[in-house]
């Protein structure tokens, strides 16, 4: 049986804890009395297992690499922000910006996640057992966000290439986010993520959302060039048809 090193944050500082976690190359750690402390277990870069008994403050497991962090409680802003690899799991709920900008690994929120879950995510996989708040996956670049519950307003606003899967309702989609068909490859992704997350759901019950890619490039008109060529196209044709569109630059 693996020895477990216990850190009681009632007696010891977050600095002492994090330094010990940064110095470790293997092993298991148990953190007690976190009492909402910030930056608990931030910056881990080793195949270690950390279990936190209680709720944490901001940026728990920030920039996490390799190891496993499990939080038996709730977390405040920025849980596992910018995580790179490994696994972070929370049994309760996370407030804002869970998994923000994460590049890799798996984040499992068994409860609900608040606003901006997966904002600017860059390859991380997130599975949320409950609901996600508004503006989740805002500007999400890569990775998968799986939501077993509902999504609040403006899901996937200005999304790039991340994939979003929601089992429940979506209050509204953000700019440039559209529903897309679920193909076999997506079912395979869902099956894998649900299995790894340990959350029970049927992949067939999810709907998929992603980028319409209408914001990827500025639309630049060139009336002078059209006139030089003698053809009424572009804005001139749009106006003639009564269907002028925006310039996509907003």
């Amino acid at each position: 049986m693996t020895d477990v090193t216990t850190f009681d944050l009632a007696d010891r500082t977050v600095r002492e804890l994090n330094q010990a976690l940064h110095d470790a190359t293997s092993g298991a750690f148990r953190v007690t009395s976190p009492r909402g402390a910030h930056a608990v277990a931030a910056g881990i870069d080793a195949a270690i297992d950390v279990e936190i008994d209680g709720s944490v403050g901001y940026y728990c497991a920030g920039m996490h690499q390799q190891g496993t962090v499990r939080i038996d409680g709730n977390a405040s802003t920025g849980l596992a922000e910018n995580m790179m690899s490994g696994t972070v799991r929370i049994t309760g709920s996370a407030t804002m910006s869970a998994g923000a900008t994460g590049h890799g690994g798996l984040l499992v929120v068994e409860g609900n996640a608040g606003a901006r879950c997966g904002i600017s995510m860059k390859g991380l996989d997130i599975v949320v057992g409950g609901d996600v708040g508004h503006m989740s996956a805002f500007m999400a670049q890569a990775g998968n966000l799986v939501v077993l519950g509902d999504a609040a307003d403006d899901l996937g606003d200005s999304i790039y290439e991340a994939e979003l899967y929601v089992r429940g309702s979506v209050a509204s989609l953000g700019t440039d986010c559209v529903e897309k068909p679920v193909e076999a490859e997506h079912l395979a992704t869902l099956t894998d993520l649900l299995e790894r997350s340990g959350l029970d759901a049927d992949p067939a019950d999810f709907r998929r959302y992603g980028s319409a890619r209408r914001l990827y490039n500025f639309h630049v008109d060139d009336i002078a060039a059209e006139l030089a060529e003698g053809g009424a196209t572009g804005i001139a044709a749009e106006l003639a048809e009564g269907g002028a569109t925006g310039n996509g630059a907003a």
Binding site: V14, R15, N18, Q19, H22, H38, A39, A42, G43, Y58, Y59, G62, M63, G78
Partner: peptide, 8 residues
């Protein structure tokens, strides 16, 4: 504080 913690 988080950035300082990550960079010790």
């Amino acid at each position: 504080i988080e950035l300082r913690e990550i960079t010790d």
